[in-house]
Lab assay of single mutants.
Amino acid sequence: DSWHDTVDGIELELHGADEELLKLAKELLKRGVSEEEVRRIIEELLK
């Protein structure tokens, strides 16, 4: 799946992010949310 590559990229960027955020990112990508949107959501949550 192409979203796996996206998640791997996000995981590299979010090496400090907790497991729950990564699960959320994967779930959003699986549901068709764009990579940009996922990054934006996670950045908001990390604030």
Rank of each mutant, 00 (worst) to 15 (best):
T6A: 11
E35Q: 12
K30G: 13
E37Y: 03
L29D: 01
L12S: 08
R31C: 11
S2N: 14
R40E: 05
E43H: 11
E27I: 06
L12K: 10
E35P: 15
D18C: 03
I42R: 00
E11S: 14
L14D: 04
D18I: 07
I42M: 03
A25S: 03
K30M: 13
R39L: 09
L12F: 14
G16R: 02
D1E: 14
L29N: 01
L24Y: 12
E36Y: 08
A17C: 05
E44W: 11
L29V: 04
H4S: 10
L28Q: 01
A25K: 03
E11F: 13
D1V: 14
L24P: 00
T6W: 13
V33E: 04
I42L: 06
D18S: 15
E44T: 06
E35T: 09
E36A: 11
V33R: 03
E20S: 11
E13N: 09
E20H: 10
H4T: 09
L46K: 06
A17M: 15
S2A: 11
A25M: 07
E44C: 08
E44I: 06
L12D: 05
K23C: 03
K30L: 15
E36M: 09
G9L: 14
G32R: 00
G32Y: 01
K23E: 13
E20A: 14
L24A: 02
L45R: 03
I10H: 04
D1Y: 01
L14Y: 09
E37V: 06
I41H: 03
W3P: 04
A17S: 07
A17H: 09
E11G: 14
I10V: 09
E44S: 07
L22Y: 09
V7H: 11
I10M: 13
L29I: 09
R40Y: 07
D5A: 12
T6Y: 13
R31I: 12
L28E: 00
G32F: 01
G16M: 09
I41F: 07
E36D: 10
H4G: 14
S2K: 13
E37S: 03
L24D: 00
D8M: 15
A25I: 15
K30F: 10
A17R: 08
G9E: 13
L24N: 01
L45M: 11
S34F: 02
E44P: 02
L22M: 14
L28N: 00
D8V: 15
E37W: 03
E27L: 07
L29E: 02
E13L: 12
L14T: 05
L24R: 02
L14S: 04
S2Q: 11
E43Q: 13
G16Y: 13
I10E: 03
L24S: 01
K26C: 02
H4L: 13
L12E: 05
E11I: 15
W3V: 14
K47I: 11
R39C: 02
D1I: 10
L21I: 13
E37N: 06
R31A: 15
D18R: 10
I10A: 06
L24C: 06
W3L: 10
V33S: 03
D18A: 09
E36V: 08
L46A: 04
V38Q: 00
E36T: 10
E35V: 15
S34T: 09
L24W: 05
A17G: 10
L29G: 01
D8P: 12
E13C: 04
L45E: 02
K26V: 10
K47H: 10
R40A: 11
E37C: 04
E27M: 07
A17E: 07
I10P: 08
K47D: 06
E20D: 08
D1H: 12
E43V: 09
R40V: 05
G16S: 07
I42D: 00
L28S: 00
H15Q: 13
E44D: 13
E43N: 09
L45I: 10
E35N: 06
G9S: 14
G16Q: 04
L28T: 00
H15W: 14
G16W: 13
E27D: 10
L14R: 02
V33Y: 15
A25C: 02
D1N: 13
H15T: 11
E43W: 09
I42F: 02
K26Q: 13
V38H: 00
E27A: 07
D18H: 14
I41T: 03
T6L: 10
L45A: 06
E35M: 15
E37R: 04
I10C: 02
L45T: 03
I41D: 00
W3R: 02
E19L: 09
R39V: 09
G9R: 13
E11N: 14
L14P: 04
L12W: 10
E19N: 07
E13T: 06
W3E: 11
D18N: 14
E13W: 14
K26H: 12
E13A: 02
H4V: 11
L29R: 06
E13S: 05
D8F: 05
L14I: 15
L21F: 06
V38L: 01
E35G: 10
S34L: 03
L28G: 00
K23D: 05
V33K: 05
L12Q: 09
W3D: 12
V33G: 02
L29S: 01
R31M: 15
L12P: 05
K23P: 01
L24F: 08
R39W: 09
G9T: 13
G16A: 03
H15M: 14
K23R: 11
E44Y: 08
E37K: 05
V38R: 01
D1A: 12
R39F: 08
K47F: 08
G9N: 12
R31P: 02
D5Q: 12
L46T: 05
R39P: 00
S2D: 12
H4I: 14
E36N: 08
L46G: 03
K30P: 00
E13V: 10
D1K: 02
E11L: 15
S34V: 03
V38M: 02
E36F: 06
D5V: 10
G16N: 08
E27P: 00
L12G: 07
I41A: 02
V33L: 12
S2L: 13
E11W: 15
E43I: 11
A17T: 08
S2M: 14
R40C: 04
E27S: 03
L12A: 04
E37T: 06
E27V: 04
R31H: 14
E20W: 11
V38D: 00
L21K: 01
L28R: 00
S2W: 15
V38T: 02
R31F: 10
G16E: 09
L12N: 08
L21H: 04
L45Q: 04
D8K: 05
H15N: 13
E11K: 13
G16T: 13
K30D: 15
A25Y: 06
K30T: 07
V7I: 13
K47Q: 12
G32H: 01
I10Q: 08
G9F: 15
G32P: 01
L24I: 07
D5K: 02
